[in-house]
Simulated scan of single mutants.
Amino acid sequence: MNQSFARQTLRQRLRPWFEGFDVPLVGAIALLCACGLLAMYSAGFDHGTRFVDHARNMLLAGLILFMVAQVPPQRLMALAVPLYTFGVLLLVATALFGVTKKGATRWLNVGVVIQPSEILKIATPLMLAWWFQRREGRAHVRHFVIAGVLLLLPFALIAKQPDLGTAILVLSAGFFVIFFAGLSWRLIVPVAAIGAIGVIALVLAGPTLCEPGVDWVVLHDYQKNRVCTLLDPSKDPLGKGFHILQGMIAIGSGGVTGKGFMKGTQTHLEFIPERTTDFIFAAYAEEFGLIGALVLLAGFSFLILRGLAISFAAPSVFSRLLGGAITMSFFTYAMVNMGMVSGILPVVGVPLPFVSYGGTAMVMLGLSLGILMSISRSRGLMQR
């Protein structure tokens, strides 16, 4: 056995570690990483070590992707209940003993300061996928109700911190699991209709509702201000509306072909706030224009389509639901980030995957892609 192993080439020894890796998915990841590195080099070259740190975070995410891809989905399923329970307990502990910064209690000091809500981005869809796997072929209304409770519990705890951006991401990831599990359109359509009516009513009544002293009851003052700023950012162009207006100016000034790499005036004259994190898409669009934005959108679109193809061909209910939810989470991230930078959605602090700076976000990205690759590998190995 040892002599046989010794006669193997390095390629033969490494081959089992990479068997089943989805090459088209790797291609989409490489394209998005390239766009992210270009954007970060330009936007963050005078931000100390932002570019180097971003590249390091990408390498770390790649290592996490590779390691998680070696773990079969069945073993990931065994982590669902303990990880979800642990995450919820940390959220409760954060509410009771958390660290408060700028009016938000989102962090917990356990020797090091952590943000427990990040765990729920993976733990929630993992738990719900496990829940429906256990009820394969016999899911009833009560099972969907319980799934809703499992989803709303972390959502409510995170929204109360308050951290509406992360709460929306957790809610969307969990909702996609429930949707793919067979949630009836008869329940979805009325809720969607009510939401559309609410948005129209908000737009029409915005001038009245946004008057000083009007209490929205269900939202904090800063959340009300974000919605009102979205409806009319020009009302306070040097204050609350500054972020949105500068983002829109940068994107519009890029035109079709952009101003050129490292030539973005809005970016380098520091008119764009948070240009290496939440608003990096504005800096990217200014320099690479509509064509660059379409390349980025094409990369995300292909990543999402490929992820859905991998998920729908998965061998188990758990893998299909988890893979589908993780894939659609990329859609949520990209849509919310680009929407808020473009002035279509309120600013909620959601990073753009592969592009925005952030160590924790990149680690979660590597973990999510690793799970997708694990699902792809499990399908390929079963077909052998």
Rank of each mutant, 00 (worst) to 15 (best):
3 Q>P: 09
6 A>W: 08
7 R>H: 12
12 Q>A: 12
14 L>R: 00
21 F>K: 02
24 P>C: 10
36 G>Y: 03
37 L>H: 01
43 A>S: 11
43 A>E: 03
53 D>R: 14
57 N>Y: 13
59 L>Y: 00
60 L>P: 05
61 A>S: 09
61 A>C: 05
63 L>Q: 01
67 M>G: 14
73 P>V: 10
80 A>S: 13
80 A>I: 10
86 F>V: 13
86 F>P: 10
87 G>F: 00
88 V>L: 11
90 L>P: 04
92 V>W: 01
93 A>E: 10
97 F>G: 15
97 F>H: 15
101 K>A: 15
103 G>P: 14
104 A>V: 13
107 W>N: 06
107 W>D: 05
111 G>R: 00
114 I>V: 15
115 Q>M: 12
120 L>Y: 06
133 Q>H: 14
136 E>S: 12
136 E>K: 06
137 G>P: 06
138 R>V: 10
143 H>N: 11
147 A>K: 00
152 L>F: 04
155 F>W: 12
156 A>C: 04
156 A>K: 00
162 P>S: 04
165 G>S: 02
166 T>N: 12
170 V>Q: 01
173 A>C: 14
180 F>I: 15
184 S>V: 10
186 R>P: 07
186 R>Q: 05
192 A>M: 11
194 I>A: 08
197 I>E: 03
201 A>H: 00
203 V>R: 14
204 L>E: 11
211 E>I: 07
211 E>R: 15
212 P>I: 04
214 V>S: 04
214 V>H: 04
220 H>R: 11
224 K>D: 01
225 N>G: 14
230 L>F: 13
230 L>R: 10
231 L>R: 04
232 D>M: 11
234 S>M: 11
238 L>M: 15
244 I>S: 15
248 M>R: 00
250 A>K: 00
253 S>N: 06
255 G>S: 14
257 T>C: 09
261 F>S: 11
263 K>L: 14
263 K>V: 08
265 T>P: 08
265 T>L: 09
272 I>S: 13
273 P>A: 10
275 R>W: 05
281 F>D: 11
286 E>Q: 09
287 E>F: 00
288 F>K: 02
290 L>C: 09
293 A>D: 08
296 L>I: 13
305 L>S: 13
306 R>S: 13
306 R>V: 12
307 G>E: 11
308 L>I: 06
318 F>L: 14
321 L>E: 01
321 L>W: 04
324 G>T: 09
329 S>A: 08
338 M>P: 08
343 G>N: 11
344 I>G: 08
346 P>L: 06
347 V>K: 06
353 P>M: 02
355 V>G: 05
357 Y>P: 05
359 G>S: 02
359 G>I: 02
362 M>D: 11
365 L>E: 12
367 L>Q: 04
371 I>M: 03
376 S>I: 01
379 R>N: 12
380 G>R: 02
383 Q>G: 03
